[in-house]
């Protein structure tokens, strides 16, 4: 019933596409990533210089969308490589069983604690929690500039703080997990109860709290550093504040799919992600790079990041975050999301 010319044209198109795919197959791989679109474009441009004969088809989805997509497709995966994707999601046992251990060239550049002991993934970049504080709102409401999570308990901020909902946002979860790790569970939950009194909204995305603060809707949006840096570049009157206790963070890992039928090309790509050129480019775009080399760009420093990023980062226990996720989210939603 769906016949007619429309169907026929499509059939032709399909045959054409298949033929093309057949010709180029040896050097085409499909990569799923959560790198933001502008970062991705910059990385791919550099990659073309080193690997001109490799066609990389990239699908970019947010961390949560991508996890749903990969799991739903797991009976017949459509991609060869996972690139730049949250470690907390990567260590989901349902994901791990889809991966194949691979030791890329230069793997020793990545400190051991940033890779899977069984070799299934390695993390090269990451992002960290930060507050976006709107200067104009602070001035208009005569509020002090916060410097730490502890400051956010001050009753003057009541109804002026937005943060991501950890049940729907990975950024939200890393913030909660870092607080529970830093303070210990008991004191951590007590802190979250105090913080809850000042929270206007738990927003269901990791970047929207910063955007909301940037637009002047609220004074403070708990989000991540790169969003603050990009919003400052866009011109918004905000200050990036790295919480003094140490910033919770998430790493972005790369992995090879066991199902890939083009492993040789996929491995070349993974090797490239640890090459000098790749690492240099990471430094241009990411606040956390686990491999030494490169230098932090000026606008990152201008926004308030120190040269030694390690000095402001909380040393996250990613295994703990992953193992306790269900339990923490259950308790969190029961207490704060009803």
């Amino acid at each position: 019933m769906h016949g007619g010319t429309c169907g026929r044209n499509l059939a032709f198109g399909l045959v054409g596409a298949m033929a093309l795919a057949g010709v180029a197959q040896a050097e085409t791989i499909t990569v799923y990533t959560s790198y933001e679109e502008d970062e991705l474009a910059a990385f791919l441009e550099e990659m073309k210089q080193d690997l001109p004969d490799l066609d990389v088809d990239v699908l970019r989805l947010s961390t949560g969308d991508l996890q749903a997509r990969i799991l739903a497709e797991s009976a017949n995966p459509q991609h060869d490589v996972i690139w730049g994707w949250a470690v907390t999601s990567m260590v989901d046992p349902r994901i791990l069983e889809l991966l194949e251990a691979y030791e890329p060239a230069n793997l020793d550049r990545v400190p051991a604690r940033f890779r899977d002991p069984e070799g299934r993934w390695f993390a090269v970049t990451g992002y960290m929690a930060a507050f976006c504080v709107n200067n104009e709102v602070l001035k208009a409401k005569n509020l002090p500039m916060p410097t730490s999570w502890e400051d956010l308990l001050d009753p003057v901020y009541e109804g002026e703080i937005v943060m991501p909902n950890p049940a729907s946002s990975g950024t939200g979860y890393l913030q909660i997990a870092s607080i529970l790790q830093m303070k210990g569970e008991e004191a951590g939950w007590e802190y979250l109860r105090g913080l809850d009194k000042n929270i206007a909204q738990y927003i269901k995305s990791g970047s929207r709290p910063c955007n909301s603060a940037s637009q002047g809707e609220y004074a403070i949006g708990a989000s991540f550093a790169l969003r603050a840096i990009k919003n400052i570049a866009e011109g918004y009157p905000i200050t990036m504040v790295i919480p003094a206790e140490g910033a919770g963070n998430e790493l972005e890992a790369n992995a090879l799919m066991a199902s890939s039928d083009n492993k040789e090309a996929a491995q070349r790509f993974l090797d490239w992600t640890l090459s000098d050129r790749a690492v240099d480019t990471y430094y241009d775009w990411k606040e956390i790079v686990t491999v030494s080399g490169g230098a932090m760009p000026e606008n990152f420093k201008a926004a308030g990041l120190p040269d030694d990023i390690g000095s402001v980062m909380w040393d996250m226990d990613f295994a703990w975050s992953a193992e306790n996720r269900d339990r923490i989210l259950e308790q969190w939603t029961a207490e704060f999301d009803n």
Partner: peptide, 11 residues
């Protein structure tokens, strides 16, 4: 549904 499927990958 969003929290479960996208937030926590709990289909």
């Amino acid at each position: 549904v969003y929290n479960q499927v996208i937030g926590q990958a709990n289909f």
